[in-house]
Design a protein around this nucleic acid. Structure first.
Lengths: 132, 132
DNA sequence: CGGTATCCCTTTGGATACTG
DNA sequence: CAGTATCCAAAGGGATACCG
């Protein structure tokens, strides 16, 4: 079912969707903008299948939204992903989605609450819920 | 490949993506917000396969984003689709996508130009390009 | 850690045709 | 006009395993 390309549609919305890819990609972008960098962290956060995550990261890299970076030279250490300026510029899309989702309770868990978190643990005292 | 549900993620972004569905759905929403109503018009505008359009409209209806309406009682005449308030409220997402697409030339055809159009024909004099 | 490889099954895309 | 039906091929997803 080779995904039909939206290229050639003379439409910025279609073009944007084409560059982004799919819904997984938007979750990945969300997580990268929240500070996640590692492959396995992204996997854990999104529950995305390994092969699919690799494919999405590749597509996003080709779209200029994500960059791969070597983060340690000696010993040569792996790579991680982060957003390019073009990718960071997608924040308004994430915000629009989140706000709409909050207004209409898209998650079914209500709108997010503002929480105090411990600077040490980064977690609210006694809470295990997690929100994005 | 039953699309994994994003429900249960406690995330408004994931929830929003779940309710919307996929990239086709966003094109449909774009067109509905531009005033298209008829099945065949949506088909022509998006080049979406018939069965897929039907499936997306169904999903969007179940998500409360789209409504089906009988637009003529006698003779009983068909139905058309339009956005609910919840659907209309997605405009910010469309705007954010379009603006990002324009900034980074996602369509590859440059940002849209402002055009004069003839009130009769609705078309610019001598132009056949179409933008969204 | 950051992926690839493999297997299997479902859905989508694409084309075409048909119906109320 | 607004879909449904059918057929095919290919991609996605899901799980699991393996590798440098």
């Amino acid at each position: 079912m080779k995904p039909k390309s939206f290229a050639g549609m003379r439409c910025s919305i279609a073009g944007a969707l084409e560059l982004i890819g799919d819904r997984w990609a938007l979750l990945v972008i969300r997580d990268l903008s929240l500070g996640l960098r590692r492959y396995d962290d992204l996997r854990a956060s999104t529950a995305i299948p390994a092969a699919t995550l690799a494919a999405r990261l590749k597509h996003l890299t080709e779209s200029g939204i994500v960059e791969r970076v070597r983060y340690q030279e000696r010993p040569p250490r792996d790579e991680y992903h982060h957003l390019t300026p073009k990718g960071r510029d997608l924040w308004k899309v994430s915000v629009a989605l989140r706000e709409w989702g909050d207004r209409w309770d898209a998650s079914g868990f209500g709108a997010p609450a503002i929480e105090m978190v411990d600077r040490e643990t980064g977690r609210p005292p006694g809470a295990d819920a997690r929100r994005c």
